[in-house]
Design a protein around this nucleic acid. Structure first.
Length: 956
RNA sequence: GCGGGGGUCGCCUAGCCUGGUCAACGGCGUAAGGCUCAGAACCUUAUCUCUUAGGAGUUCGUGGGUUCAAAUCCCACCUCCCGCACCA
């Protein structure tokens, strides 16, 4: 029979919607407020996005069934630059992007036409994503939906920022950034062609004096100034002379460009060809000595300043170049033969001139040898970590290189003989727009001061108290907090809210998305038009969120009617704080941590977030999803092929929270089949259950209670994979056993029992597979909605410990019979079972008590048993004790307890039911004797090996 | 470099926090059987080694330790993966 999932989904979705099942308003019940990081609508969502939302939805649905008033809202994050970039690429007719829209995202042509406007892109994918969420069955209260460019939201973010500023948490600073000169915007890895990280390194520029000019050399090793023997200059480059902040520098043309971005005032005054400088001398700062300027074709004009200082003792390049120069043709008017390396650093394992040592060791013969790179690295790291400065460095004598480097740099900068420039580590780096990136010193940028020690400490202490799932991620939060520094919170382009006190800046997307959960509590009133953004002032937010201010005054100032103001306040106070926030683990080092930081800064403690739940990502057939692999499956098309529930389960069941979930067709098909069989099965059983319960019935009810409590516990810990296993698979084996027992007895009265059990299973399945659960619920003839049913709670009165022990004894005995048959390969003609003699039962109880009390020493146990006449028979069979102790130890803790509590089962009675089962398997009956039965049939003398819960078996 | 997480029976994975339920869940693969004209799907059984009595032996990256008992706790080592900022 076929199950039409599309029809089922539509039917129940419609019902949920019509009955407004998931629209939540404050009421007297306890509330539960669950949120997920809202999506950025620049593409349709795919299977991977579905994971976090599905987890949150399961959480919401579970809590709802537990009796909480649950709010699960959703918004859309329009803030940011990627959509802006997309719009521009549309304007430029970017073929690849347009192709993606058409074939990958299936955007209708008339929509694409509007995509030159960024908001149109966001609006389109917003609706697309929303439709997918509805189809997935997420129990979202859509009345509270908003986007981050809504005017009211803007007012809210402005309030947030003014608050942060009041608390002194917004600071201004000047920092170097990777920069696109065309976009006038910072660039990061995502903004570059080929996703190159525009990383850069700080160089110290050392100012050598030449005539009236400054010859600046860029270096990573300012401390080697003491070992400089000469200057290298490229004779073929035409240098520029420029006024740089009042000094006249000789630099390469490229360097002049770079300096301009580093906020230097640069004015060109002329040019000078490199070869004209060769043979002249320059003064070394700090040392006040003259060194010659020598030609070096390896000096690149696009690197640093185009002028290089030479430290042959510690820089292999310099050493080799000098050697080569000495061997080459003489430079007129200059004797370089006496130019010797000046050693200034002492390092274990190296001689006077480490550069020479390495060059000789590596067999390097000329300055074009690529091995020089390697040699430089070696020296740099060995000297940096192990080197100390020599006496000829004056007051830096004995200092380690690591320390001296910083001190020399600082001292020289303070003395005006050095400066700082930044150089991209690899260039060129190109922006997505095609322009070549530079390093820019960005002035007076706004930062959130996440370095503040007090703020950090406050966050640390709250992290210690919060619920964080899974637990192992808590540590990571602490590390992120420690590591976090100031973070730029505004940029110059993109969608978003303007910085209230400086409208040239737009608040950056990771900073306007940290306390918006509070906004959900009032967005309902904004959407209904009850409150409007027109005259909204900070006092409105102060009153609603912080309970500060006079309602009358706020009402008249903001134009919000008193009642609406009061409603909004009550609504916020009811729902806040956030009880659970769900997100992917990629947001731990940023959003989730900022979320904590900002809540702590702005809200009083009672409104701080209670719990964070973090999940891993989704793989596609074991591989990472990526556009280039073409393995991204859009969520909505997956729903059409597999059905929403199957996708939900496939994502949830393949991994625990933090693991990467693997989505594969195989698994989805399996789950779909499983759900279909459950749905079909649910039409078969009707109430009522039989009045008299057989042992196997009491057993299956007992098992049901256990499954309920195990499942509940698992969901509470968000171990959804485990929970689903209990509901879907683990219990299945029990049901099969029950069916087998019933069939062996030729019973036909247990439909009502199955009805009970399926009803409980439907309820427990409801948070995970809501559509299938509704259908099952309905098929079973239950009233109302499964989504609104109570979550089953375990009923201890239905747990029959003896039934549990008895059934497990039956199963184990059948297993033993099967094992014997298998090993001996005989076809059974006659099966005899012997239960243990009564004294063994008594001994078993004693031993169980001892073991439970922690006594596992066989000798001690035997002694105490012998001393008691009731169990003195143990002398006849000391091995019994050892075997029994092992039996008990190999039982799970819970089983031992239940055996302890239930007392011994009446094995003779239990085995009276085994015949029908053996008959079903082997076509013959079973004879049962007690070991103590004098008249027993026991040709092989087997009976004596019987133990409680381990009968002796004879198969012939 | 800094920080985080792993290495389990052919493969993927559970178990580890809270030591005995562990020869170790589950899935895939493989083999046999069932079903079928055949195949796909599905179902059953098996899948470390040995074993004609329900058993025994050797396993959970490597080496050591704690314990009556270790995949699980402790120490050391080897090794793999991920994140590292003005980006959502």
């Amino acid at each position: 029979m076929h199950v039409d999932w599309t029809a089922i989904e539509e039917k129940w979705r419609k019902r949920w919607q019509e009955e407004r099942q998931f629209e939540s308003d404050p009421d007297p019940r306890k509330k539960f407020f669950v949120t997920v990081a809202y999506p950025y609508p620049n593409s349709p969502q795919h299977i991977g996005h579905g994971r976090t939302y599905t987890l949150a939805d399961v959480h919401a649905r579970f809590m709802r069934m537990q009796g909480y008033n649950v709010l699960f809202p959703m918004g859309f994050h329009y803030t940011g630059t990627p959509i802006l970039g997309m719009a521009r690429r549309v304007q430029e007719n970017d073929r690849e992007l347009l192709e993606n829209f058409r074939t990958l995202y299936k955007v209708p042509e008339d929509k694409i036409a509007g995509f030159s406007e960024p908001v149109k892109i966001a609006d389109y994918f917003h609706e697309e994503i929303k439709a997918g969420m509805i189809e997935m069955g997420y129990s979202i209260d859509w009345r509270r939906e908003f986007t981050t460019i809504d005017p009211f939201y803007n007012r809210f973010i402005e309030w947030q920022f003014r608050k942060l500023k009041e608390h002194g948490l917004v600071v201004q600073g000047t920092h170097p950034v990777g920069w696109c000169p065309r976009d006038h915007n910072p660039v990061s890895q995502h903004d570059t062609l080929g996703d190159v990280e525009p990383s850069f390194t700080e160089y110290t520029v050392i100012k050598f004096k030449y005539d009236r000019f400054i010859l600046p050399t860029a270096t990573l090793r300012p401390e080697t100034i003491f070992g400089v023997t000469n200057i290298w200059i490229n004779p073929d480059v035409t240098y520029e002379t420029c006024m740089v902040d009042g000094e006249e520098w000789i630099i390469s043309p490229e360097c002049a460009q770079k300096l301009a971005y580093l906020n230097k005032k640069v004015a060109r005054t002329g040019t000078v060809v490199g070869s004209d400088l060769v043979g002249k001398t320059a003064t070394v700062p700090e040392r006040n000595v003259e060194v010659p300027i020598l030609p070096a074709p390896f000096v690149r004009s696009d690197n640093g300043t185009g002028v290089v200082m030479s430290v042959p003792a510690h820089a292999p390049f310099d050493y080799q170049a000098l050697e080569d120069l000495k061997k080459g043709k003489p430079i007129p008017g200059l004797d370089i033969s006496t130019l010797a390396p000046i050693s200034i650093i002492e390092t274990d394992g190296y001689g006077e001139v480490p550069a020479r040592d390495v060059i000789e060791k590596m067999g390097i013969k000329s300055q074009t040898d690529p091995g020089l790179e390697e040699a430089t690295k070696e020296i740099y790291s060995k000297e940096f970590y192990g080197g100390r400065l020599r006496q000829n460095t004056g007051r830096f004598h004995q200092k380690t290189v690591a320390v001296a480097k910083e001190e020399v740099k600082r001292q020289m900068i303070e003395g005006g003989s050095a400066d700082i420039i930044y150089e991209l580590n690899e260039h060129p780096v190109r922006c997505r727009c095609g322009a070549e990136c530079v390093v820019k010193l960005l002035d007076n940028q706004w930062f959130l001061n996440y370095s503040s020690p007090e703020w950090k400490e406050k966050v640390h202490s709250w992290i210690r108290e919060m619920k964080i799932l899974p637990e192992e991620i808590r540590n990571e939060f602490d590390n992120v907090v420690d590591w976090l520094k100031e973070r730029a919170c505004a940029r110059q382009h993109g969608l978003g809210t303007k910085l209230p006190w400086d409208p040239n800046w737009i608040i950056e997307s990771l900073s306007d998305s940290v306390i918006y959960m509070a906004y959900y509590t009032i967005s309902k009133y904004v959407n209904s038009g009850t409150i409007s953004p027109g005259r909204i002032t900070d006092s409105f937010f102060d009153l609603v969120f912080l309970d500060i201010g006079d309602p009358k005054k706020v009402s008249s100032d903001s134009g919000v009617p008193p009642q609406a103001l009061e409603d909004a306040r009550k609504e916020f106070q009811y729902w806040y704080p956030v009880n659970a926030r769900h997100s992917g683990r990629d947001l731990v080092p940023n959003h989730l941590t900022f979320f904590i930081f900002n809540h702590l800064a702005i809200f009083p403690k009672k409104y701080w977030p209670e719990e964070i739940v973090v999940n891993g990502s989704v793989l596609m057939d074991g591989k990472k999803m990526s556009k280039s692999m073409g393995n991204i499956i859009p969520l909505r098309s997956a729903i059409r092929t597999h059905g929403a529930d199957s996708i939900r389960l496939a994502i949830l069941i393949s991994a625990e929270l933090l693991q990467d979930a693997d989505f594969n067709q195989e698994a989805v098909r399996g789950i779909k089949g499983k759900l279909e069989s459950l749905v079909l099965e649910s039409s078969k059983y009707k109430e009522p259950r039989p009045s008299a319960l057989e042992q196997e019935d009491r057993w299956i009810y007992s098992r049901l209670q256990q499954v309920i409590s195990e499942t509940t516990l698992a969901v509470q810990k968000m171990r959804l994979r485990e929970a689903l296993h209990h509901v879907l698979y683990e219990f299945e084996a029990d049901l099969e056993w029950h069916a087998k027992r019933a069939a062996a007895k030729k019973r036909s009265d247990h439909a009502g029992i199955m009805h009970d059990i399926l009803t409980a299973r439907a309820a427990m399945l409801s948070p995970f597979a809501p559509y299938a659960a509704e259908e099952m619920w309905h098929n079973l003839g239950n009233t109302g909605l499964a989504s609104r049913a109570s979550w089953p709670s375990p009923d201890d009165s239905k747990v029959d410990l003896l039934a549990l022990q008895s059934e497990s004894l039956l199963r184990r005995t059948l297993d033993d019979i099967r094992n014997i048959v298998k090993v001996t390969k005989i076809t059974p003609k006659k099966i005899t079972i012997y239960t243990a003699a009564p004294w063994k039962g008594a001994a078993y109880q004693r031993i169980l008590a001892k073991v439970t009390a922690g006594e596992v020493n066989i000798g001690n146990i035997i002694k105490s048993l012998i001393s008691d006449p009731e169990t003195a028979d143990i002398k006849k069979d000391p091995d019994f004790v050892k075997k029994t102790v092992n039996d008990i130890l190999s039982d799970p803790q819970g089983d031992r307890d239940s055996k302890n509590r239930a007392g011994l089962v009446d094995e003779a009675r239990v085995f009276s039911e085994i015949s029908t089962l053996v008959e079903a398997d082997y076509g013959i009956g079973v004879q049962v004797f007690s070991e103590s039965d004098q008249a027993k049939y026991d040709p092989k003398n087997k009976a004596r090996t019987a133990r409680p819960y381990k009968p002796a078996i004879l198969i012939e």
